[in-house]
Design a protein around this nucleic acid. Structure first.
Lengths: 263, 263
DNA sequence: CGGTATTTTGATTTAGCTCAACAGACGTGG
DNA sequence: CCACGTCTGTTGAGCTAAATCAAAATACCG
């Protein structure tokens, strides 16, 4: 993979400082990473195509097209007519719902291999959320009708997609539980644990969450205000549980974090 | 259908009173409604079997077994090993999550034709919620492995189940939005609208929600306390928007209700 | 280096929780 | 059919978590 690590020069200088700056790797991709010749390989990595043989994969491959988006780009907007199913191949994407009152809800953050866009042509003809590139990304797209054909031809794919969707439903309901029963502090702790499990990587600072996450993102994930999210993060840092800065978080004391979520 | 309507004698007497008593029909079913001879007919009504021909249906039918539960019975408990997929044939079922701290979350209320239990044998070997009969109910059950076989043999079924699950995911995320952004009053108003659309029937009192719903149920659906739910319901009744009593609600002014939810 | 976006911190306000007591409805058994 | 016990809903008062408003500090970007 031709990934350019844009190493920040200060990352060495600030190693011992109380609050380090941008320890995240912000990978940028050459556009050809997202090119035709790599699609087949990528498709085979996607969970719901994993059981297929080369011939089947080849067939499905022809139905997909590949696109590149830069960090911050919007892949589709909530309310747009929904017509594509997408598979994230590289980078990370966030799904956001906007409300009339201007509040946002951050529904999910995706990593490579996950699908988004619309699945079902049933009734819902608009995207129910906005998809935004959180880093530079590469995305494969397939038209809904074509995807239906694939599902019909390959029951194992349909079953895999069903399993994944069911799992997401479970996660969404868990989120409802958190929102209904826990204090803001505990909700943020829970989200940090989840993100660490999904995106965390071992570093000197602890488990670094490999994603640009702002206070507003945290607030939108936990249904609170940026100010409150900031206060909670300050407390957690004060308590030596996390290390954090602008758009990044690392968990330095996972044990203590999980203790707090119980209590 | 041999359904006994247990007509409450007071329903006539109290027609003009400010607050009527138990206007709900509480149907009880003779156990043989849930018997073998009716299963086939019922299965054909289930959304995801609708496209199948008689022969296919017959085949699937043999894999299901029928069970009757009385109002208040628990069909399965959160944490039990999950092994069955269930289809509600008659009555209504509620899905509840319990928390360590003793708070409950009411995830969903089901009507005939909807499925519950577990879908995916993937990883999750325990029910993530408790299913309780809200009225007398009749339920068809199939073992997970058998259901997998059905899915594999009938792609159209797999696709239907996927569509339904996707729709539920959308609903769950909508619920997350409500919890994250709206006041308790608006959340209750939103739930009342939803319930009216799903379970409402035209009556003299207005759109009567054909289900026993307590203040606690409302509270557990909206993530609030019974006291607050009660206060909101009192206000709504005061404002002439709903009529309500013990375990029942009717919406007398739907227009005004939807006005309130916007504002 | 200056401008902008993000984060922090403080002060004030408030929605909704909790605790508490009571009232109305239900149903059960005598 | 009535009396009684139990469950469900109502209402009040005080308290607290978190929202909001406001302003300053810090990091990042060109």
């Amino acid at each position: 993979l031709t990934v350019n690590k844009r190493l920040d020069k200060q990352s060495n200088l600030t190693l011992m400082a109380g609050r380090r700056k941008t320890p995240l790797e912000s990978p940028t991709i050459d556009s050809h990473v997202c090119s035709l010749d790599l699609r087949l390989e990528k498709l085979g990595m996607v969970p719901f195509f994993r059981n297929l043989n080369d011939e089947e994969l080849e067939d499905i491959n022809t139905k997909f097209s590949a696109h590149h988006f830069s960090k911050g780009d919007t892949i589709y907007y909530q309310g747009d007519p929904s017509s594509m199913l997408r598979v994230l191949v590289f980078g990370s994407v966030k799904l956001v719902q906007h409300t009339d009152e201007g509040k946002d809800i951050l529904i999910d953050m995706l990593k490579p291999g996950e699908y988004f866009g619309s699945l079902s042509s049933l009734g819902n003809d608009e995207y129910s959320e906005t998809a935004q590139a959180q880093t530079d990304v590469c995305v494969l797209s397939i038209g809904l009708k074509d995807f239906r054909i694939v599902l019909r031809a390959h029951p194992s794919v349909a079953i895999s997609v069903l399993d994944i969707t069911d799992e997401r439903l479970r996660t969404a309901r868990e989120q409802i539980r958190l929102l209904s029963t826990l204090s803001v502090e505990k909700r943020i702790i829970a989200i940090l644990s989840t993100l660490a499990a999904k995106f965390g990587e071992e570093r000197e600072q602890g488990i670094l969450i490999q994603l640009p996450i702002s206070r507003k993102d945290l607030a939108d994930m936990t249904g609170t205000s940026t100010e409150t999210a900031s206060r909670v993060m300050s407390q957690l840092q004060e308590a030596g549980i996390i290390t954090t800065g602008r758009q990044w978080v690392a968990i330095t004391n996972l044990k203590k974090l999980s203790t707090l979520s119980e209590n």
